[in-house]
């Protein structure tokens, strides 16, 4: 491993230390004979990509911030409720459900969904399909998941676009 010889002083160089990163081997480890996966050094491969992604994020959000002003309405007044009064967009699915039943829409169903989400890895116990998009052995779980997500999206869309005065159903066009 001639290449791995340190070429400048690192510290602490402590001869008494019995462990440490001495060299980097590219092949299978002698002890296990297990072929290592194709690996690359985090520096620079991962770190440069991460930096690029951050710059990209900041640029896109900055452009959005330059182009669109954050909304600011009239000062808050408890005397004049806007009609319709809407929650933030990500809660409009909830608000839509709340319009049917306050307990089930606001507490019951969301609570059950959270519990279901927390329990998901314990319910779906059969191993297999990790790290693969839409693995065929997991199609049932994926369809249930997408069904729930789709329902929430539809409800959110209804709450956002199709609800007008007094929460009546309106068509936006």
């Amino acid at each position: 491993m001639l290449e791995d010889k340190p070429t400048y002083e690192r510290f602490p160089i402590r001869p008494g230390k019995t462990y440490g990163l001495m060299c980097v081997v590219p092949t299978a480890t002698e002890a296990t004979k297990i072929e290592t996966e194709k690996q690359v050094h985090a520096w620079p491969a991962a770190l440069t990509r991460e930096l690029a992604l951050f710059v990209l994020t900041l640029v896109i959000l900055s452009v959005v911030a330059l182009l669109f002003n954050a909304p600011l309405e009239e000062p808050a007044s408890r005397l004049h409720p806007p009609n319709p009064a809407k929650a933030p967009w990500y809660f409009l699915g909830l608000q839509e459900m709340v319009a049917y039943s306050a307990f089930w829409g606001g507490i019951g169903i969301p609570g059950l969904l959270v519990l279901l989400a927390l329990a998901a890895p314990y319910l779906e116990r059969k191993p297999g399909g990790e790290g693969v998009w839409f693995h065929s052995s997991r199609s049932a779980a994926n369809w249930v998941f997408l069904g729930i997500v789709g329902t929430l999206l539809v409800l959110t869309a209804i709450g956002t676009f199709f609800r007008g005065e007094n929460w009546a159903f309106v068509v936006p066009w």
């Binding site: 408890r78 409720p81 009609n83 608000q95 709340v98 319009a99 007094n166 929460w167 009546a168």
Partner: peptide, 20 residues
Amino acid sequence: THLGCVVNPTDSGFDCPCHG
């Protein structure tokens, strides 16, 4: 009594602007 919005008096009674 649904979610605390202020209802508007109307001819027939009161209407809530939040959830109808």
